[in-house]
Design a protein around this nucleic acid. Structure first.
Ligand code: DUT
Ligand code: MG
Length: 1038
DNA sequence: GAACAGCACGA
DNA sequence: TCGTGC
DNA sequence: GTTC
């Protein structure tokens, strides 16, 4: 794809704008075709060296959202700090090197820092304010120098940079979309329409009417000609030089940017100044940049040949592996040294519930993803079965006569209308559904077994029919069995249908002939218990209660054992012997949370408001002691044990409440439920909203319960890995419980104490106690089965979720190479191919510094397109995280000059591709000319050999939604969900655009799209929802 | 027993 | 619509 | 799994 064809791609959009009547699908089709052309010319990426300076504290151990040290972020915690506008220096000297200072500076300029005449009301932040809460670490100096073509004339630069913006308008921007919702009127969420865009609403207040907006079209660049030249220019010749801070400062005041003077703010604002509250009434606190004292590390500005140091730094970049791998990253079972064997106490008499059967192994996303659709279980079921049916059709190729099991079964039953009788028909009268694990391909063994069933008189079910089926025979896991059945849960299988292993059939086949007729049924039943496939269904199908409970119990136990053992891949063995499994749960690393905010969160001197009951008072004494040495002497006998949690919780709340000076007062009514209550007025319950109370990130002694965390984390991940939505929510719950545990200041002593925590219920509390007592979770079944392993592996691929992962497993794939070879006929989507190709890169987290370095390049290019652009990194970066799973870039633009950033994103993407920064696209904006659009792709540091691919997202939003977007994009995800939940309960709906007042039906379903009530600033939204303001770094939940 | 956030993009 | 991801 |  040497000849990348951006121009054509964008021309596409232009032409669409010009021809609005073109049907959407047509458009989409063409869009898809153009996707291919995004690949950049690899020849452009040569001859560069790169250096990034890392700082010492960069030692990365990350816990959840590990952050840069508190000193660096101290300002972030102060509410009203005004910005410290060290400005960027963009200088075009005759030698044409660009010195770039930390992005923060750029931010200051991109924001209308100098937009004094604010005609548009609150639209523009006042001078001295900035959107973004930049955290510290502005030291990552980057040097990029060309190793060839060092000369780069001014004209060349100009032609590149200006060529785009100043290009003649060859095309008018397309039609405008509908009306403004400037008044905060109805704002419709994006909806899909056959024809119209997905984003029917118009977003910005300013009409960049078609005649203006130089950036709303792709002028000359549409032909390959003009564009390519420009692009070559960029990538071949430019000399970007990122100088160390100090040096860069020298050029600060003289900043000019594309001929326009960029307001240079002072840079030496004192810390004190920074901490002062905003003075301007219209200032958006959320825009405040609580500066973090920039770290003045020695930056390495090396021009020319890479030094050893450079090499080493490069190395570090490419080698960097975070200790907090991306959620989806898997730790594959065996080699995991952090694994610690847990005791499997098979003799334990403790009842084992369904949750015991879990797969300990690698773990996919721990980020509880959105609920799987599926409203009613029944409708889901239907969908499922139709789906598997569909697959049946499409699948099966290669091999002699490739067939799905269903097809094969069907063919059998047809062929066998006149069965060859030789054996006794021991299966007479039974309707058997068999699952060998692979719904797509009937293996030899599967066929053999099916034939046996049929030849023994059994009625083999091609598809599962809950009414007529008498037995389900399976050689595979619960997951795959359910999948084959088209069900989501075991419980959906009718009670009268036993689920048994092939062994059951095998025994009947071999011995059945000797049984007297009248005993056969009873034998079958007993055997069904003995060979139950799933422990939780051992007694399914038992009509006659002649089985003693003792028997059942034993069977149950045994079944579980077997279950734990090798629930192996396929059916190549009809005697699944119980193979001991080297059970080991990988403990999630010694999470040593070096939380940076210790000092900030020091407890109040007087824990006021403690309940004045004797219980509270006396427990407080104990509590204080515990808080000190985190070792509760409170024995399990302590009659007050159960009161502790509440008191502690209160303390904790107070504690965090005092943590910042600008804390809003949280009155009692703020303590509400996190659950249910879609109604607008469910007041006063006992639990709070997660978003209301900052999580205390106590520096040390955080959780002395990591042990528990580890096990529970495993549990959570296991369930995440499983199919079915009940597992999804289970995992969700575990996560909450874990969170509660993390927050809890002292060691859990008792069941009651554990259960007292929000999110910890009966079952989890039991598990906790078990862990405490036995050191492990006996109830963990180590089914480190092939399918969970494989599925987890596959889920590590970007674009692969559990559904696809299991599909592929069922298709016979086990390794990534299997996928590459298309084994089993698996097809990868465009995105999945990329995800597979860069598996390791994508699953890695990058050091904050790298995110910053990449972003600086991007920002430069973006500001060339439109110097008034607001463009900043959000996500974990904004929250101050030390490493970032991706780069989340927010783009917007003030409209006070009558312009918008319409059309900027596509151009930016084009230029970033040209500059070698963007490398692959994962998802393109639906309508790139929409002010509101999203992009998803991969990027890397250009011209740096060995630089890893990094995920990058762009979110472009209309100026008026900047507050909502900021809030959304800053996260973290659980914080967002919590806040949205609270909003919902209050009769609002919070989304990435803003806060809407909505009407909902009794079940929380929205009637309409609601009335926009806040969107311009984060603060408004916090206020309306009565959530205490929190700086980005405080918005970490879970 | 229902809810556990709400939405964008690809197929 | 479903799956996936933010 | 947990909450209401
Ligand atoms: O399910 C989600 C995922 C993300 N977000 C928001 C919050 C999050 O902060 C932001 C960016 O998403 P991303 O996946 O990049 O998470 P992050 O917080 O930036 O962490 P990471 O370092 O893994 O990128 O989008 C949500 O609202 N819901
Ligand atoms: Mg991110």
């Amino acid at each position: 794809m040497a000849d990348f064809d951006y121009a054509a791609y964008y021309q596409e959009f232009d032409s669409r704008m010009a021809a609005p009547d073109e049907p959407m699908d047509e458009f989409l089709k063409r869009k898809a075709e153009h996707r291919q052309s995004f690949t950049k010319d690899p020849s452009l990426a040569e001859g560069w060296s790169f250096v990034s300076s890392y700082t010492t504290h960069e030692a990365i151990h990350a816990v959840n959202d590990s952050k840069v040290p508190s000193e660096k972020l101290s300002a972030m915690d102060s509410l009203g700090s005004s910005l410290d506008p060290e400005e960027i220096s963009v200088r075009k000297s005759p030698e044409l090197s660009l010195s770039v200072l930390p992005p923060r500076n750029v931010a200051d300029q991109s924001i209308p820092v100098q937009a004094p005449d604010n005609q548009l009301g609150g639209n523009t932040p006042p001078p001295g304010s900035s959107f973004v809460d930049h955290s510290a670490q502005e030291h990552a100096a980057v040097t990029i120098s060309p190793q060839r073509s060092p000369s780069f004339t001014r004209d060349e630069i100009e032609s590149f940079t200006l060529g785009i913006i100043d290009a003649p308008l060859s095309k008018k921007s397309g039609k405008r979309k509908t009306t403004d919702d400037a008044d905060g009127a109805m704002a419709l969420p994006r909806k899909r329409h056959a024809h119209n865009t997905r984003n029917p609403q118009n977003q910005d207040t300013v009409d960049t009417s078609a005649t203006r907006s130089p950036i709303s079209s792709f002028p000359d660049i549409k032909g390959k000609r003009g564009q390519k030249e420009d692009l070559m220019l960029v990538t071949k010749e430019p000399q970007l030089q990122f100088l160390p801070l100090d040096e860069a400062k020298l050029t600060r005041a003289t900043t000019k940017h594309k001929g326009r003077r960029i307001a240079a703010q002072h840079s030496m604002k004192s810390e004190k100044d920074k901490l002062e509250p905003p003075t301007s009434p219209i200032e958006d606190p959320s825009l405040v940049l609580p500066d973090a004292s920039p770290k003045k590390s020695k930056a390495l500005a090396v021009v020319g040949q890479p030094s050893e140091l450079q090499m080493e730094l490069q190395e570090r970049i490419s080698k960097h592996t975070s200790s907090k791998p991306r959620d989806k990253v898997l730790k594959l079972g065996k080699g995991d040294s952090s694994s610690k064997p847990l005791r499997t106490d098979a003799n334990s008499s403790i009842a084992i519930d369904e949750s015991d059967i879990i797969h300990v192994s690698s773990s996919p996303s721990s980020r509880a993803t959105s609920p799987e659709r599926a409203k009613a279980g029944s409708s889901k079921r239907v969908i499922q079965s139709t789906k598997s049916h569909r697959q049946v059709k499409g699948k099966g190729k290669e091999k002699p006569k490739p067939m799905t099991p269903a097809e094969f079964a069907r063919s059998l039953t047809i062929a066998n209308t006149n069965p060859k009788e030789s054996k006794k028909r021991v299966l007479e009268g039974l309707s058997i559904f068999y699952s060998g694990g692979d719904m797509n391909y009937a293996s030899k063994v599967t066929r053999k077994k099916m034939e046996l069933v049929v030849s023994s008189g059994g009625n083999l079910m091609a598809t599962f029919d809950p009414v007529t089926t008498t037995h389900i025979v399976t050689d595979t896991s619960q997951e795959l069995t359910l999948r084959a059945l088209g069900l989501k849960r075991l419980k959906q299988i009718p009670e009268n249908i036993p689920t048994v292993t092939w062994k059951w059939v095998a025994v009947i086949l071999s011995h059945g002939a000797q049984w007297p007729e009248e005993e056969i049924e009873g034998k079958r039943e007993k055997l069904a218990i003995q060979h139950a496939a799933f422990p939780d269904r051992v007694d399914a199908g038992i009509k006659t209660q002649k089985i003693t409970s003792m028997e059942t119990l034993q069977a149950r136990k045994k079944a579980r054992l077997q279950n734990a053992a090798n629930r192996s891949t396929n059916n190549d063995d009809n005697l699944p012997g119980p193979s001991a499994h080297p059970g080991s749960t990988s403990s999630a690393g010694n999470v040593e949370s070096s939380r940076p905010f210790g000092p900030l969160l020091s407890p109040p001197t007087s824990p006021a408001n403690l309940p004045k009951t004797t219980a509270a008072t006396s427990s407080k004494v104990t509590l204080d002691a515990q808080l000190d040495d985190h070792r509760s002497e409170g024995s399990s006998q302590d009659p007050l044990a159960e009161y502790y949690p509440a008191v502690r919780a209160q303390l904790e709340r107070k504690e965090s409440g005092w943590s910042t000076s600008a804390e809003l007062d949280v009155d009692e009514s703020d303590i509400e439920s996190e659950q249910g209550a879609p109604r607008a007025s469910r007041s006063l319950q006992r639990q709070g909203w997660a978003c209301d109370n900052k999580e205390s990130t106590r520096t040390k002694s955080c959780p002395n319960q990591d042990i528990i965390d580890k096990v529970l984390t495993e549990l959570m991940k296991l369930h995440e890995a499983k199919v079915g939505q009940e597992d999804h929510w289970r995992a969700f719950s575990y996560r909450k419980a874990i969170g509660a545990l993390k927050q809890y200041p002292s060691r859990i002593q008792s069941f009651t104490e554990a259960k007292g925590l929000t999110g910890v219920g009966e079952k989890t509390a039991r598990k906790i106690m078990e862990i405490l007592q036995t050191g492990g979770l006996r109830r963990i079944k180590y089914e480190d089965t092939a399918e969970v392993k494989a599925a987890s592996l596959f889920r590590g691929i970007y674009g692969v979720g559990k559904t696809v992962a299991y599909q592929w497993y069922a298709a016979g794939c086990r390794t990534l190479d299997d996928l590459r070879e298309g084994k089993g006929g698996v097809k990868l989507s465009h995105v999945q191919k990329i995800g597979l190709q860069f598996y390791n890169d994508i699953n890695d987290r990058m050091p904050r510094e790298e995110a910053k370095a990449i972003f600086e390049l991007i920002k430069l290019i973006a500001l060339e397109l439109d110097s008034k652009l607001f463009i900043e990194i959000m996500g974990s970066y904004r929250r101050g995280s030390k490493d970032c799973g991706d780069i989340d870039v927010l783009i917007t633009r003030p409209t006070d000059d009558g312009h918008t950033h319409k059309g900027v994103l596509p151009k930016l993407l084009r230029d970033l591709h040209a500059a070698g920064i963007l490398t692959e696209d994962l998802a393109l904006p639906e309508d790139p000319h929409d002010l509101e659009s999203t992009y998803r792709g991969l990027c890397h540091l250009p011209h740096v050999p060995g630089s890893k691919r990094r995920r990058i997202d762009f979110l472009s939003v209309p100026w008026k939604y900047r507050g909502g977007a900021l809030l959304y994009y800053t996260g973290n995800d659980f914080f967002n969900r919590s806040m949205r939940l609270k909003a919902k309960s209050m009769g609002y709906s919070l989304n990435q655009r803003g806060l809407y007042k909505v009407c909902r039906d009794s079940r929380g379903e929205k009637f309409d799209d609601g009335l926009l009530v806040a969107s311009e600033t984060e603060r408004e939204i916090f206020d309306i929802l009565n959530v205490p303001w929190q700086t980005p770094s405080e918005r970490i939940r879970g």
